[in-house]
Amino acid sequence: MNADRRASACFLISAIAAVALGVVYARGGQAQAEGLLLAVTSGGIGAGIVVWAKASTPHDEVTEARHPLASSEAEVAAFTEALAAGERALVEGKGRRGVLLSAGAALTAFGAALLFPIRSLGPRPGRDLKETPYGDSLPVRVVTEDGRPVRVDDLPVDSLLTVWPEGHVDAADAPTLLIRTRPDRDLRVEDGAGVVDGVVAYSKLCTHMGCPVGLYQAEEGLLLCPCHQSTFDVYDAANPVFGPAARPLPQLPLATDDDGYLVATADFMEPVGPGFWDRGR
């Protein structure tokens, strides 16, 4: 088969595929058929053109001169002179200095004025990064995602439960892990009084980049962050033992209220989540 026939065959196959594509679409569509038929349609045209081009376009080598890109000295000199002449007309003369200075000041001020609208894009960072809704009204019950309060007896040993302050289950900075630790293992935490019957509460947000540290290896008491593999030891104040996180997960001090439900007695002991410039101030 000569090249022209091969090219025509490619174009014809492409056209047929295009018709088939229409049929597939009209009959409700199917992603795989659509993708493949589109590939044949587009590929048929491409292949046809290439076969055609290889067979019938001139392939003789053509040589074109490459002229120097730079202009001649005279042209450059004429340009710079024209520029300088204009500049002189503007700048030279008595009192021009004042005009120049005030023009510069106006442009600077205008640039600065344009920056103000940017301020509207977001609120002042302030204390938001250092506080969570736990601190709004203390003590506050911790509740599950559907708002149920939690009793210690509801938590079997080695279980973990994600909780929020009551009324704030949508708060992105407040998810907290309740973990019932094993009674036969030493538990060292920042605030021992904040542990109720082996139930300890830590912020769920990784201190590296804020991913939820949701992987609990109960046997070893390790919390692992799936984003960058930071690992925290639940039995040792949630201190980091591996990975890029440099700080422990902040602890939430717990107690029980009169009805036996778990409550937070204070906000987290440190700002939760990733670090930032003035975190320690």
Partner: peptide
């Protein structure tokens, strides 16, 4: 160049469909 454009489209459609 035009041929390459259509072949690129073909490869991307193939990946997108399969």
């Amino acid at each position: 160049a035009v041929g390459l454009f259509f072949l690129t489209g073909s490869v991307l459609s193939f990946l997108g469909g399969v």
